[in-house]
Design a protein around this nucleic acid. Structure first.
Lengths: 264, 264
DNA sequence: TTCAGCAGCTTGTACCTACCAGTTGAGCCA
DNA sequence: TGGCTCAACTGGTAGGTACAAGCTGCTGAA
């Protein structure tokens, strides 16, 4: 048996790291293509002449990196990524608002099946939202929640807050269920026109709640997209969207990129 | 001693998860504020009546979530986040190009100390870049690398690829070192004007190399920002920037948000 | 007074065992 | 044939041990 801490001499890396490195290289070299299963922990123990704990530590590195996922009874599987591109600068185009909501048309257009669940609540505004809407923290706002799925897979969760002064003008915001023509259109019909947005994009590891909702395994970060919509004189809404980072990219088009479309 | 698998009865959660949950709540409730040190593993063993392995498994959950970081000999510390906002829609403003490079002015403006290291190489274009520049994969391009620091902390790595036809027109692109007036200006002076951008933003866990370069501990995802610049008729450059996700947000301003600036 | 070195703390790596729990397929019985 | 059980795999959780290695402060010698 290998003695502790003596190390092969040729390598100063800890054993569990070497396990991770070797497997990572094999995965990247497509020796284990996406969807393939790795050998079992016990097999890897034999191969690397290491204990099960050490092999597990190595595999855990790859799980944390989002390269593989583990399931009890089945083994370790190489993750595959099929990303969805969200064009955020065209998403709710100011000059050409679509009928209905932008998400459904976008997903359907990509040949995939959208599904969404709505929920409406009145809640005190969290700090980040309050700051964007320029109301005191804790002020009541109307929150429209939305869980979105693509082909049955949880895709994103969205929560839009509207300040109370706007809800008084536009009472249907507080109705449960979707607003068929789209909220942007509904508000425009009432004389409240969105003339601009401010977007803030960040990333972090999901909270346990988010990981459960989005079915994001360990090693999958989330993209957090905060969009604040403005009328001529003040902010009118703040939408916080949380995406699974392994499934989504965000795109922005700035200026004239006619050359891009021409070439495609 | 607690017998294996029998569980306290009141809780079906594994012990290591309860350890993680309790500590996470205490951290979020500021019982351990950012920068504070957690009790040592041995102390936590006593507190939770668990083995060191189990406590370590619980702490590892929080490390993976990016909430805490560990250092040998010192203990576990609660991470603090001071984020830097990068205004990507103003960053290289098409109508008001700044003198010098945008990053330095942006960072200096925030009252912080910028530092960057340049490197120039000729390399075959990787698949993603080749697709954006619309040249065959593996075609030689000029790559300008840049490692950026803020207050001495590694902040981002940037790699800009220029197609060879452009380098023939603009030979200084292949010179080592910075281009003082900014590459955008230099190119504009040669009649190659950038009229638009396409941005692609994604997130993932860093590769081991990236984690080393950015000094990103476990549980810190990276933001990957791919900006392709277009002239009137074709793509002229592709910049891939990799940020530490815990230190950076990206902002976009779309349409008229005069109301935002007015209120600040 | 200064500083080298050690004691005593911390986490890191590595090994062992034992048992729980999910998945699958072989094989038996109705 | 259909359906059930069970054995044999998979990873998940939990306990233990030992020693390596990084950090800090005390202590004693120069």
């Amino acid at each position: 048996m290998t003695q502790w801490g003596i190390m092969g001499g040729m390598s100063s890396q800890p054993l569990y790291r070497r396990v991770a490195d070797v497997l990572r290289n094999e995965i990247n070299a497509k020796a284990f293509p996406p969807g393939a299963r790795l050998p079992s922990e016990r097999d890897l123990c034999d191969r690397f002449d290491a204990s099960r704990n050490t092999v597990r530590a190595g595999l855990n590195v790859l799980v944390t990196e989002g390269l593989i996922s583990a399931s009890q009874g089945l083994g370790y599987e190489v993750r595959s990524h099929e990303v969805f591109n969200l064009n955020a600068s065209r998403f709710e185009n100011l000059t050409f608002p679509q009928n209905g909501d932008a998400y459904s048309t976008d997903v359907t257009h990509a040949g995939r099946r959208p599904h969404q669940e709505f929920r409406v609540e009145m809640q005190p505004a969290p700090a980040i939202v309050a700051e964007q809407l320029r109301v005191p923290e804790g002020t009541t706002t109307v929150l429209r929640f939305c869980h979105r799925y693509v082909d049955g897979v949880p895709w994103s969760t969205q929560a839009t807050s509207y300040p109370m002064w706007l809800v008084e003008k536009a009472p249907r915001l507080a109705d449960p269920g979707d607003i068929a023509e789209g909220t942007t259109r509904y508000l425009a019909g009432l004389g409240v026109e969105q003339v601009g947005y401010f977007d803030d994009i960040s990333t972090r590891m999901p909270t346990p709640d988010e990981a459960r909702l989005l079915q994001a395994g360990a090693g999958v970060p989330v993209l957090v997209w905060v969009r604040t919509g403005y009328s001529e004189d003040k902010p009118i809404r703040c939408t916080v969207t949380t995406f699974r980072g392994d499934l989504n990219h965000m795109n922005y088009e700035i200026g004239n990129i006619a050359a891009r479309e021409a070439g495609e």
